[in-house]
């Protein structure tokens, strides 16, 4: 069988629309993961046991189970509880929640990497607890987390194809629609896969630059 370039070019615009949806899911899902991950990290450090223990359990459970089933849960179970999400919204929440459990570990390592003297100094200065975090600890912990956080944006993008299972209009869903009309699967599937691969390669290239620049800063 030969790769039909005319057919491939015909369907490219539709697949690119799908890729745009995939990128939107990546960006918004990643934003959710960045914020929620910090919340998880702080909650797990809470001195209140009734906060830190359940949050720790939930985080470990979400991290230890497959994203795909979490997506099913959000998309098919929540409507029964009266909370119906659109496919894209369910996908974003699922990706954001799943990756928040990873970013929370990155933040935790970043927070633990702040020298203990910084805590002592903040206490000696009699800073209120909130300001210890916002003015002393987090401004040091977050920058050192950046390279690892960047890597998770790439990992998150690579999980976006799973949104095909909850009918988000990403490239594979678009491709399936095309195949249903043309009965020619080879080009749509190959092109959708290549689009994903191309973006992943570009992202990982950017990730390496970020990492190198950060390393340069750390040693300077």
């Amino acid at each position: 069988m030969k790769f039909d370039w005319n057919y491939a070019l015909d369907i490219l615009p539709q697949l690119l629309d799908g890729l745009l949806t995939a990128l939107i899911a990546t960006v918004v899902g990643y934003a959710v993961a960045l914020v929620l991950g910090l919340v998880f990290a702080l909650a797990r450090r809470s001195h209140q046991k009734w906060v830190s223990v359940p949050v720790g359990f939930v985080v470990e459970f979400i991290r230890g189970t497959p994203l795909l089933i979490q997506l099913f849960f959000l998309f098919f179970v929540l409507p029964q509880l009266g909370l119906a999400l659109s496919p894209l919204a369910a996908g974003i929440v699922g990706l954001g929640l799943h990756y928040a459990t990873y970013t929370s570990e990155v933040y935790r390592a970043g927070i633990e990497g702040v020298p203990p003297g910084q805590w002592d100094a903040a206490i000696a200065l009699h800073l209120p607890r909130r300001r210890v975090w916002t003015s002393v600890i987090l401004p040091q912990a977050v920058p050192r987390s950046i390279p690892a956080l960047t890597n998770y944006s790439i990992a998150l993008f690579k999980d976006v194809p799973q949104l095909v299972a909850i009918t988000v209009a990403e490239p594979f869903t678009v491709g399936r629609g095309i195949i249903a009309e043309t009965f020619r699967p080879f080009e749509p599937i190959t092109m959708a896969g290549l689009l994903y691969l191309a973006v992943a390669l570009v992202l990982s290239y950017i990730g390496r630059i970020v990492e190198r620049r950060y390393k340069g800063m750390a040693t300077a």
């Binding site: 690579k158 594979f172 691969l197 992943a200």
Partner: peptide, 14 residues
């Protein structure tokens, strides 16, 4: 770069 699902889709459908 090639996610598991991308590879699986290609192996099974293409």
């Amino acid at each position: 770069g090639a996610a598991v699902l991308v590879l699986a889709f290609w192996f099974v459908y293409a």
